[in-house]
Design a protein around this nucleic acid. Structure first.
Lengths: 205, 205
DNA sequence: ATTTATCTTGACCGATTGGTCAGGTCGGGC
DNA sequence: GCCCGACCTGACCAATCGGTCAAGATAAAT
C-alpha cells in the first residue's frame, strides 16, 4: 500500500534502488548536490523521473542515503588501526588502505569532498560526532606510541589530516594529477611508493 | 555605445565590476559553478540582475574572469622558488607561502577545488599548459638539488603534489578540520609547525 | 482467471533558472 | 538649460528545476 520500505524488498525494488544510488553517486560526485538534477540521475539509472521518485521521495533523500551508505566504508580503514599492532606497520597499513580507497572509489571520495567543500551542511553532525570521536580515539593511541618512543613525536591529529589530504588528493584532483604528470604514468602506483617513503621517514623516531 | 571595455573604465565601472567579482567569488566558491545563481551574486554585489548583466555578458563570463584573475596569484609561490637559493630554505618557503595563501584566500582555494573536482572543464587548458610547464621546470630544479645530495631523493612531482594537498586541505576542508579539532585551536598555526616538521624531516638527505 | 498489490508513465504544476529588452534615470560637458 | 552617453530597472521570456497525480501496465497470489 505505502511506498517501498527497507524491509522485505522485492527483486525489482532491489534492482532499481541500487541503480538509482549508483546513478546518484555518478551524478552527485561529478556535479555536487546543487549541480545535480533528477533528470540526469533518472537517465543514468535508466528510469523515468516519476518512477525514480517512486523509490525515493526526493532528491535530498537520494543524496542522504548515499552519504550515509558510504560513510562507514570511508571510515573503516582508520577504525582498523590496531592499538596492539606494530605502530609503524599500523600507520603504513592505514595509508595504504586509504590510498586504495581513493583508487577504487574515487566517486565516493569526490562525493564527500563536494559536501565538505560546501560547508558540510548535511554531514556536520557526523563530523562533529562519530568522526571526531574516532579521531580522538586513534589520536590517543598514536600519542601513546609516540611517548613510548616507537614512532616520532608530532601532532597526531595533524598526522591524520596529512594522511587524508595526500591520499584523497589523488582521487579528488585526479584530472589535475594526470594532466600534470602527462601520459605514461600510473598516478596511484607512484603515489603508493612516494607516500610509503614519506611516512616511513616521517614516523621514524 | 558598446558594453564597458577593460580600457578607460569609469569610476562606477571600476566599483561595480569589483563588487561583482567579489560577490561572485563568495558565491562560486561556496556553491560551485552550477550551484551558484545570478540572483545570489547580484544580491551579494548589491546590484539588480539586469544591471549585473550590464557589466558581464553572462554567468560564464564572471566565472571565467575569476578563474583567470586568481590563477596567477595562486601559482606565484611556486614560481618564486629560486634555483639559486638554498634548497631546503626554498622548499620550506614555498610550503609556508602556500599555507599562507590557504589561510588568507580560502575562497580562491575552494574556487579552484570546485573546478578541478568537477573535472576542470574550463581550466584544463591552463593545467595542461602553464601549470604543467611550471611543474616540469621546478621539478628539474628539485631533481638537480637531489642529485647534488642537497635534499633527499624522491619524486619531485609527487613532492609538489604533497605540498599542494596538505596546504590546500586546510582551506578546502576548513569546516572538517575545525570540527574535528574542536574549539581552542588555531588550525593554521598548528599546521604551520606540523608541516615545517614534516617537510624538514622528509627533505633531509 | 481474477483479484490485488506493485510498478511505470505522460501530462502537468508552480518555482526558479539564465538572459533579454524597451525605456527610464543620472551625471558631466557644452 | 540641454544633450548624450553611461547607468539602471521592471517586466518579461523560454527553459529547466523538483515534484505531483491519475491512470495504465505488469507481476504475484489466490
Amino acid at each position: 500500500m505505502t511506498k517501498p520500505q527497507a524491509k522485505t524488498k522485492t527483486k525489482i525494488q532491489e534492482r532499481n534502488s541500487r541503480a538509482i544510488l549508483e546513478a546518484g553517486l555518478d551524478v552527485f560526485s561529478a556535479q555536487g548536490f546543487r549541480g545535480a538534477t533528477l533528470d540526469q540521475i533518472a537517465e543514468a539509472a535508466g528510469l523515468s523521473k516519476p518512477n525514480l521518485l517512486y523509490y525515493f521521495p526526493s532528491k535530498d533523500a537520494i543524496y542522504l542515503a548515499l552519504l550515509e551508505q558510504q560513510l562507514q566504508t570511508w571510515l573503516y580503514p582508520l577504525r582498523a588501526m590496531d592499538p596492539l599492532g606494530d605502530p609503524l606497520a599500523e600507520v603504513m597499513a592505514y595509508v595504504r588502505r586509504k590510498l586504495e580507497l581513493s583508487r577504487d572509489f574515487p566517486r565516493e571520495s569526490r562525493l564527500f569532498a563536494n559536501e565538505i567543500l560546501q560547508g558540510a551542511p548535511r554531514l556536520m553532525p557526523e563530523i562533529e560526532g562519530a568522526l571526531k570521536r574516532l579521531v580522538e580515539e586513534k589520536s590517543a593511541i598514536l600519542t601513546r606510541w609516540m611517548s613510548e618512543g616507537r614512532i616520532a613525536r608530532m601532532s597526531p591529529v595533524h598526522l591524520i589530516f596529512a594522511i587524508w589530504a595526500m591520499t584523497q588528493h589523488y582521487a579528488d584532483f585526479d584530472v589535475q594529477v594526470r594532466a600534470v604528470l602527462g601520459p605514461g604514468h600510473d598516478p596511484f602506483a607512484e603515489a603508493g611508493s612516494f607516500l610509503e617513503q614519506l611516512f616511513r621517514k616521517l614516523l621514524a623516531p
